[in-house]
């Protein structure tokens, strides 16, 4: 995997909140076409790191380079226009818009004509497996898994080059997680889309990612293939505490 070119490079990013260092000199690369898992216990700084990449926060130190271009500290909408899209830990639906309209908003980023954007939105919705009868349903009337799919679809509709998924599996039942994982694999395979997946649910992220990064208390403590990570003593310690003697 690591033979491809780097889509995203994060170099020594630091983000503080008052006296707390939420992200402490984190560096990593994401290569074209891979699914990178980003894991760590609560408060490890995963979401803060996400927000530093997507422009919600400006890091105090370090650089974020996307496709060879420095994007540190740019505004969120400009970063999205450059091709980094995200989904949210807590779904942020457009409640009073229909599913199709919601995804059309995403498609309009690159397509001028509303009619063509709606066609593109419908195509994306079909691709991720949303049933046609849901297209005209309002955002407030759909289930959680459908919300996650719509969130994903409206990000995909913008034609992203890198997709950041913040705890997509949170709150889902096991068979729904499996459904979602399959959709993500399909997107990765058929569209060749590079992804970073922040996740709590171990089984979900282990099965999905090509490579994993582990964060603990703001620092990167491990990086490697899922099976290496699973047996890394530092990771086990971070998650479960020190092994009893």
């Amino acid at each position: 995997m690591s033979s491809g070119k780097a889509v995203l490079e994060v170099n020594g990013v630091v983000k503080r909140f008052g006296g707390i260092i939420a992200v402490n000199k984190v560096s990593f690369k994401v290569y074209e076409g891979e699914i990178l898992g980003l894991i760590g216990p609560n408060g490890a700084g995963k979401t803060t790191l996400f927000n530093c990449i997507t422009g919600v926060y400006t890091p105090e130190e370090g650089h974020v380079v996307f496709l060879g271009q420095e994007i540190t500290g740019l505004q969120p909408h400009i970063i999205a226009q450059k091709g980094i899209l995200r989904t949210w830990q807590k779904v942020r639906p457009f409640k009073k818009m229909t599913v199709l309209d919601t995804v059309t908003v995403g498609a309009l980023l690159r397509i001028k004509s509303v009619r063509k954007a709606r066609e593109k939105a419908a195509e994306i919705l079909r691709f991720i497996g949303m049933p046609e009868e849901k297209f005209d349903v309002l955002g407030r009337e759909i289930t959680l898994i459908e919300h996650k799919l719509v969130d994903l679809a409206r990000a995909l509709a913008t034609g992203p080059k890198l997709l950041l998924l913040d705890e997509v599996a949170a709150g889902l039942r096991p068979h729904e997680m499996e459904e979602l994982a399959n959709v993500l694999r399909k997107i990765n395979k058929e569209k060749g889309l590079t992804m970073i997946v922040v996740e709590h649910v171990m089984r979900f992220v282990m099965g999905l990612s090509n490579r994993l990064i582990v964060m603990h208390e703001g620092q990167k403590i491990a990086e490697g293939k899922p099976e290496e990570i699973a047996n890394d003593p530092r990771v086990i310690e971070a998650y479960l505490g020190t092994k009893p003697l």
Binding site: H77, R92, K96, M97
Partner: peptide, 18 residues
């Protein structure tokens, strides 16, 4: 479409490039 998206959720709208 963009204005309605902003009305519904500003942060999400911004993250879609608006």
């Amino acid at each position: 479409y963009y204005l309605r998206a902003i009305r519904e959720d500003e942060l999400a709208a911004e993250a879609l490039g608006i």
